[in-house]
Simulated assay, not measured.
Amino acid sequence: MSNAAGSSASAAASQNVQERRLMGLSAFDRHQSLMKNAIKYYRAQLPPEQQTVKTDYDVLKEQYRFVRTAEDDSTDSWDVRMARRYYAKLFKEYAVADLSRYRESKVGLRWRTEREVVIGKGQFVCGAKGCDERRALASYEVNFAYKEAGERKQALVKVRVCPKHAMQLNHKQNQQLIKKRKQELQKERLEHKKRQKHSQKTSGSKSDHSSTSDDSPESH
């Protein structure tokens, strides 16, 4: 009995030490430590890929959904199971963005691959495709509208990017704000001109009235 209690206390103490060690690490170092353990202890448990006449690309093209639903997973066919495994590897915490056509207000989004999750792409590294910036990253929630399997869908996704790509990600909104501000400034200028004209007209009327009074003959 005492041995069991001692083992339990020892395990609890060990867990506390590990928790304190993890909490003492920086966010990125903690991420690396957790990823290392996940790969070491859980990767071997992943089920082996089954052989099939179809290629993985063929199956993914047929079965992949940006955001899967219970209805998508309602069948037990190998095609769907394979798509589900692939979907599970995409780690839907942050998305990777393709901003190459941002001027057209077109943004491509996808979930991160396992390798990208491990190296911190989209979390500790800018989530814009091809960018390795690690400084001054900020997270944005993007309402992503897309068409899939002939159906229009929407998903609220997170994108974490550097200042440069934040401007590109929000290009449409920024342009709208600039346009709105220009309209406001134009309106302010027009109102200012109207006030000036009104002021000049009022001032001119007072001046004319004063001159008329001064020029009138004195009464005897």
Rank of each mutant, 00 (worst) to 15 (best):
P47N: 05
P47M: 07
V53F: 09
V53T: 13
K54A: 14
D56W: 10
Y57S: 15
R65Y: 06
R65L: 09
V67W: 00
R68G: 11
T69E: 10
T69R: 07
A70R: 09
E71Q: 10
D72E: 09
D73P: 00
D73Q: 08
T75Q: 13
D76M: 03
W78G: 03
D79K: 09
V80E: 10
V80Q: 14
R81Y: 04
M82G: 01
A83C: 06
R85D: 13
R85S: 09
Y87E: 15
Y87R: 10
A88L: 06
A95V: 13
D98F: 02
L99S: 07
S100E: 07
S100D: 05
R103K: 15
E104L: 10
S105A: 13
S105K: 13
K106M: 00
G108R: 11
R110G: 13
W111D: 02
E114M: 07
E116R: 04
E116Y: 02
V117S: 12
I119D: 06
K121Q: 12
Q123V: 12
F124R: 06
V125M: 10
V125A: 03
C126D: 12
G127K: 04
G127M: 02
A128P: 00
C131H: 03
D132K: 12
E133T: 13
R135W: 09
A138C: 05
A138R: 14
A138T: 13
S139P: 07
